[in-house]
């Protein structure tokens, strides 16, 4: 079997729909992991089914709740708008056409405290599972089902081998590795899924490597 019984008996979640609430809340919460400072405004571009049915399913509440760090199983989700107001965080929703993206997709744009923005695009692909498809314009494919290392770096020879070496030293096996880049010699992004949890100190080692702009470790226990 390749399907776990806990995929069947689960997720534990706030209703009514694993795609429209649980997945939406999780995606939005995971998107905040890509921010390097607090945000003051978040804007949700809704695509496909999300755009048509978001209010009836409470997807709007779920997305705001996720951005506030409220987990997909927390009934506080219902109070998300109120909690945002209490924290002085504003939000808005608008329809967007993301082309042939999954029906339940959203472009989440955070306005950070220094006025800069970060955009994360992703989909809620069913059963509470999510797929992050783009981070600040760089295409990626992040499911966050296994421990994941995300590295953004300059596209030049030897970078990937240095990054992978750090995992080898820590005796961590790589399950899946995906590389993408904006353009030749531009900004590159690698998503590395591993078979065991990734120690946080690898992040520091990697960010000290010349050419590495950002490294992020996401272990599913936090996801």
């Amino acid at each position: 079997m390749i399907v776990s019984i806990f995929e069947v008996a689960g997720p534990i979640m706030v209703g009514p729909s694993s795609s429209h609430t649980a997945g939406a809340a999780r995606l939005s919460r995971l998107a905040t992991l890509f921010l390097n400072q607090p945000f003051r405004h978040v804007s949700f571009g809704l695509h496909g089914s999300f755009a048509r049915t978001y209010h009836g399913h409470g997807t709007d509440l779920a997305l705001v709740a996720g951005a506030l760090g409220i987990r997909q199983e927390d009934e506080e989700m219902k109070r998300a708008f109120q909690i945002a107001q209490e924290r002085g965080i504003t939000y808005d929703f608008y329809p967007i056409d993301l082309g042939d993206a999954h029906e339940n997709s959203v472009a989440i744009t955070f306005t950070l405290e220094d006025g800069s923005t970060t955009q994360v695009v992703g989909s809620s692909i069913g059963g509470g599972r999510v797929l992050v498809t783009s981070i600040d314009g760089i295409d990626t494919e992040l499911t966050l089902d296994s421990p994941t290392l995300l590295v953004i770096y300059e596209d030049r020879p030897g970078m990937l081998s240095r990054i992978c070496a750090e995992l080898a030293y820590a005796n961590i096996n790589i399950g899946v590795l995906k590389c993408s880049r904006q353009k030749k010699g531009g900004q590159a992004c690698s998503v590395i899924e591993t078979d065991s949890p990734i120690p946080q100190d690898i992040q520091q080692t990697l960010t000290q490597l010349r050419g590495v702009q950002n490294a992020l470790i996401l272990n599913p226990s936090e996801a």
Binding site: V8, G10, M13, V14, G15, P16, S18, G58, E75
Partner: peptide, 9 residues
Amino acid sequence: MGRVCAMPT
């Protein structure tokens, strides 16, 4: 929007 356990959905 109460808490449930999907089974299977």
